[in-house]
Design a protein around this nucleic acid. Structure first.
Lengths: 242, 242
DNA sequence: GAGTGGTCTAGACCACTCC
DNA sequence: GAGTGGTCTAGACCACTCC
């Protein structure tokens, strides 16, 4: 606390950050600098009130928000501590293809190659957790960025959950978005692989030579049930993720 | 609010939930029942104060926490609204290579090919946000599963943040884990690509032919500063992620 | 000007821990 | 009993929106 001074806006045009944000920054700064290492006990709320000249409710809000965010741990009757270092989960957000394209300033188009009901073959039945021969919807799309194919989407959908799938409009709304809108509680599991393109992929993605591709297998669950499974193929020379 | 009554513990042994939790439950209950659908404008804080007999700070805390959690949207001067249904972000968790291998029941080994300080070349300087020619640590590891190479890790580390990097033990603890343990506040950004292996990759990963690989570029940030940048190469025929 | 949410205070009472 | 964090209040001032 020796050098804390609340930010003042008397002479500046930008409004100052709220006091509780200033307290949060102050705590994080001490953590980043190593001044307050893991397991370090912070000054008590009472002490911070006195030393920073800020009311206890405001100090408390700052520390509570840092605790909710995982930076601190608080024990009633004992004190406030810098949280033990936990391995940060390294998460990658997989954006929708149309969002990726729009974020790059491109124009997204979706070409429907087929869209039909069919009896599930062994692979499809396996992926969808259905009986071989059961009715399944299958769609096969090529997504283009300014005309150039950037993703192939080969998708199965369980007709029991989405009987209207075959009548949906995929030119403006992706299949994933249709699913998300219908099922608010949908969860997803992904497997990512690299593979070289084969004749099928070369044809639909209009690749001139064998190309390394990212292949994402995505299953979409509603509780215990698989609503949809898709294989997404991205040519490595045209697109990257993340 | 017609039937809201704060929970009372006069005759019960369990302590009552705090008032702000009771307000949160009350709001969520109205949302779940459909009473307050998406875009519905909630009663104002002032109205809730009057009707629930709870002070404004407590009402405010409840609504603020529901807003942070994404259930509500608040606009100063206008009001509080039930949030629009949003598409679920699709996240992929990138596990550490040693965790992946152990999860599959394999034995993980890390082979250090080099580990040294060097002046940053243009690419390295670029990735690390450093000046060309500045000192940078570089490590080059091959990770093996039961003897078979499954990942190449080419990593730069900023010596200013981790002067002890060159003396670390990488046989039992990955570089990423070393970094996570030292810096609790590390954040990561990833770019994933597919590429075919070149002579360097074929050599270190002991690949017999050109192979499609997943390439992850991971940058690890401490605030505004890049602490480390790594290129991780996974041969597509030996490993998949997720 | 009336109504909204955003912040902040000074005080209070409490449950809990440690000695 | 002294110190800790958890909650709650009644009031204040403010920025912002809408009319």
């Amino acid at each position: 606390m020796p050098h804390f001074k609340p930010q003042n806006d008397d002479r500046s045009y930008a409004p100052p950050k709220p006091l509780y944000e200033q307290v949060k920054s102050y705590v994080l700064k001490n953590m980043e600098s190593g001044e307050w290492p893991a397991y370090f006990q912070l000054p008590s709320e009472h002490t911070l009130v006195r030393e920073m000249g800020i009311s206890r409710m405001t100090i408390h809000r700052a520390l509570r928000e840092l605790t909710q965010a995982g930076y601190l741990e608080r024990i009633q009757g004992v004190g406030t501590f810098v949280a033990a270092p936990k391995k940060q989960p390294k998460k990658l957000e997989l954006q929708e293809i149309d969002d990726i394209i729009r974020a790059r300033g491109g124009r997204h188009q979706c070409e429907v190659h087929f869209l039909q009901g069919e009896p599930a073959e062994k692979d499809a039945a396996n992926m969808m957790g259905m009986e071989v021969g059961a009715d399944v919807y299958r769609s096969y799309f090529v997504h283009r960025e300014n005309g150039l194919p950037v993703m192939l989407e080969d998708r199965y959908v369980n007709p029991a959950f989405m009987p209207e799938y075959l009548d949906a409009d995929f030119s403006r709304i992706t299949a994933d978005t249709h699913l998300s809108r219908k099922f608010a509680l949908l969860s997803h599991a992904h497997v990512i692989q690299a593979a070289v393109s084969n004749a099928e992929i070369n044809h639909f993605l209009e690749l001139e030579a064998t190309t390394a591709c990212i292949v994402i297998n995505r299953k979409s669950w509603l509780g215990e049930d698989i609503v949809s499974a898709a294989r997404l193929v991205f040519p490595g020379n045209r697109i990257q993720l993340g």
